[in-house]
Design a binder for these strands. Structure first.
Ligand SMILES: [Mn+2]
Ligand SMILES: [Mn+2]
Ligand SMILES: [Mn+2]
Ligand SMILES: [Mn+2]
Lengths: 213, 213
DNA sequence: GCTCGGATTTAGGGATACCGAAATACCCGC
DNA sequence: GCGGGTATTTCGGTATCCCTAAATCCGAGC
């Protein structure tokens, strides 16, 4: 009854990530794609998670976290984001380089070390990509945002969050000073940053940046 | 052909540890005890390590690291000891509390993070227990030492190393200021430290402290 | 030399977390 | 209402690492 493992933690985190910025529950095939495993592996693991009361799922139905599953998922997200923040703040990592390291360390650090890192960093509320860091009690400080691809033309706002999925994009954005906290304006396909800088974004890029409303 | 895993790393590290301070090669039963696994598990894993050229072993014979195995073992030791040093220097851990955390993290940190930690700490030569930290090239700075249980009565010297296996002992020693670098004198079963402090040591305690000759 | 007890290996399984191929359910368009 | 194609599950299997119980080996002591 180990009850947890890196695999279980990654499943819970990925199920949660899907509903963090959009509301529809995740399907097995999307989950399989995100985790880079075969659909049959998802069926099997989801069955196990359901047996442990971490998700609800009936055959051919959607997958939803239970309260217990959500709380476990938030714990993993917290570890992931605090590790990313630590790597950038203390260890000289660029924000495009932290994800893979955090993906592993999130399963390896103890509660005690997590607490020490959190204290050391001054209990940050957001990670380097602007993702909110769940607090130890599970609460999250959230800010209303618009996804760039859904923002009206000419919309101006502060960058709140940038998806950390594409390191290439993160490097391009860093090069022209676009990061969380910076004021920008959307003009068609290009995003105007400070000091007259601008980046042209493709469809994927416009699905990776969130501004204040 | 993953070629490495936490289990493999722990086997190599444990095989190496046995010869680090004493010369006889380790036997399967001792290895099983140290790793807290059944002897049959050792037989099986050692067979695999031999197939990968990391140890030499014929049935009923001793287990010895090959050059390749030694170099891999030193890599794990380096990660373990740098993590311990980091936990004590930066994260406020006591030296009695770092071992279990390092036991896990040693398998999780990337080469890049290892290098960042090493640089951050100023490339330390010894961990908090006085164990030498293998350098990135595999070299080790070693100091001639005597184990307390083998030291002549009245021997005086500087504490070089204290085994990190018994946290209880580490706490007792810390309480009276005995740690690597401190000058002490052995009188029978008691070790006299600075400022008139003294600790009485049982047989195990006298097998856990090394002094300069 | 032989024997016996401890050390080691062999044999047979279990848990976890994957996979590909084959069966099945579901639902959209007609 | 009926296919038919896609999503999902089922099924049989692999790899890793561990276990207990049952051989088997080995060497110390007689
Ligand atoms: Mn992960
Ligand atoms: Mn992030
Ligand atoms: Mn370990
Ligand atoms: Mn140590």
């Amino acid at each position: 009854m180990a009850n947890t493992s890196p695999a279980i933690e990654d499943y819970l985190k990925t199920i949660h990530a899907h509903t963090e910025w959009q509301p529809e529950p995740i399907t097995p095939s999307v989950l399989a794609t995100r985790l880079a495993v075969a659909p049959s592996s998802v069926t099997e693991m989801v069955k196990k998670l359901a047996a442990q009361g971490l998700v609800t799922h009936q055959p051919y139905g959607a997958i939803r976290l239970t309260d217990a599953g959500l709380s476990r998922a938030l714990g993993v997200v917290r570890r992931h984001r605090l590790v990313e923040t630590w790597l950038v703040s203390d260890m000289g990592y660029g924000w495009d380089a932290v994800h893979d390291e955090a993906e592993v360390l999130e399963h390896a650090i103890s509660d005690r070390l997590l607490e020490a890192i959190d204290a050391h960093l001054g209990r940050p509320a957001r990670d380097p990509h602007g993702d909110p860091i769940p607090q130890a009690d599970g609460s999250i400080v959230s800010v209303p945002t618009v996804l760039l691809s859904e923002a009206p033309a000419g919309h101006a706002g502060t960058v709140v969050r940038i998806s950390d999925r594409d390191p290439q994009l993160l490097r391009r954005l860093a090069a022209c000073g676009i990061r969380p906290g910076v004021l920008v304006t959307l003009s068609g396909d290009t995003l105007d940053g400070p000091d007259g800088t601008a980046v042209e974004l493709d469809a994927d890029g416009r699905e990776a940046i969130w501004l204040t409303t």
